[in-house]
Amino acid sequence: MAEFLSLREAVSRYIHDGDAVCLEGFTHLIPFAAGHEIIRQEKRELTLIRMTPDLIYDQMIGAGCAKKLIFSWGGNPGVGSLHRMRDAVERNWPNTLEIFEHSHAAMACAYEAGAAGLPFAVLRGYVGSDLPKVNTQIKFINCPFTDERLAAVPSVRPDVAVIHAQRADRNGNVLIEGIVGIQKEVVLAAKRSIVTVEEIVDDLGASVNACVLPAWAITAIVEAPKGASPSYALGYYDRDNAFYKSWDEIARDRETFLTWLQHNVFEKGAAS
C-alpha cells in the first residue's frame, strides 16, 4: 500500500546501489526531480532502463550513477546526441557503460511481460536487423503451435520503477493523464515503485477510462510540484524547449557539465 514520503526519504529508502531502475515517461511526465535526487544521493552501479533515454539519463550517466543501460532509443529529442552518454560509451567517462539496445516494440513487449509476471516477451520483430548481432538479450524461438520463428527478449522486471503523474488522492491512488506511454506497466512490473505527483488531492477527478494506478501497486508517493520539468505535465506546465536546446552545449564539455550539475542539482537540492 502506498505511503507518502519526501523525495529524499523515498529515494534513500527504496533505491539502492546496484539496483535495476526504470525512470519512465514518454516525452511527457518525465521524472526529472526524482532523477536529480538519485544523483544527489550518489547512487552507484545502477542498471538504468528506459524506452527513450533523454536528458535525465544523460545527467545520471554523466554523474556516475549508471553501469548499464537497457533502452530502445537515446537522444536529445529534436536536437541531437546525448553527449554524456556518448562519452561513457566511447571513452568510459566517468565510467564504463554497458549498453543493450532494443527496438521500441521489443521494449514495450518486455514491459508488458514484466507486468504480467512472465520471464520473457515474444514478438514478430528484428527480421533483417543487425541488433541481434550486438545484443545478447535478443534470442529466437519457434512457436510450439505453428513453428513460426519469433524473437524473444527478457521481460523488464526492475527493482524500482519511478514515474511522475498529475495527481494522487489521499488514499494513494494515482491519476495519469495525457501521453501515458509505458508508465502503468513498469509500476506493475517492479518490485518497488516511487510516484512523484504535481499535487495530492481529496478526489482525483478521474474521467471514464482514465489511467488510474491503484494504491496497492505503489510503494511510495511524493508530492513534487514541477517534478517533470523541463519536460511537461498536461494541465500544469509546458515543455521548456529552450532548455532542451541549451543542453546540447552544456553536455558537450565535461567541465561545463560538472559545473551545471553542481549549481543546478547539488546546490539546488541542498537549498530545498
Results as ranks from 00 to 15, higher is better:
225 P>I: 02
145 F>S: 14
238 D>L: 11
111 Y>I: 01
175 L>Y: 06
135 N>C: 15
212 V>K: 07
178 G>K: 10
179 I>V: 14
168 A>T: 06
31 P>R: 09
121 A>L: 04
7 L>S: 12
157 R>G: 00
3 E>P: 01
254 R>V: 05
240 D>Y: 03
139 K>R: 15
132 P>F: 06
162 V>C: 04
146 T>D: 12
98 E>R: 10
72 S>I: 00
88 A>V: 15
193 S>E: 03
58 D>G: 13
112 E>T: 09
224 A>I: 00
12 S>T: 10
160 V>G: 03
219 T>I: 12
99 I>H: 05
85 M>Q: 12
176 I>C: 07
107 M>P: 07
172 G>D: 08
150 L>S: 11
21 V>Y: 09
70 I>F: 02
107 M>F: 13
138 I>C: 08
53 P>K: 08
148 E>T: 14
105 A>K: 15
96 T>D: 09
170 R>K: 15
75 G>K: 07
51 M>K: 13
115 A>H: 00
68 K>W: 00
146 T>N: 12
166 Q>M: 11
76 N>I: 07
250 I>R: 01
125 G>K: 07
117 G>K: 07
226 K>L: 00
154 P>Q: 10
13 R>C: 05
69 L>M: 14
57 Y>D: 06
244 Y>R: 06
78 G>K: 09
218 I>M: 01
164 H>R: 03
168 A>E: 07
230 P>G: 01
222 V>T: 01
269 G>F: 04
160 V>H: 03
234 L>E: 07
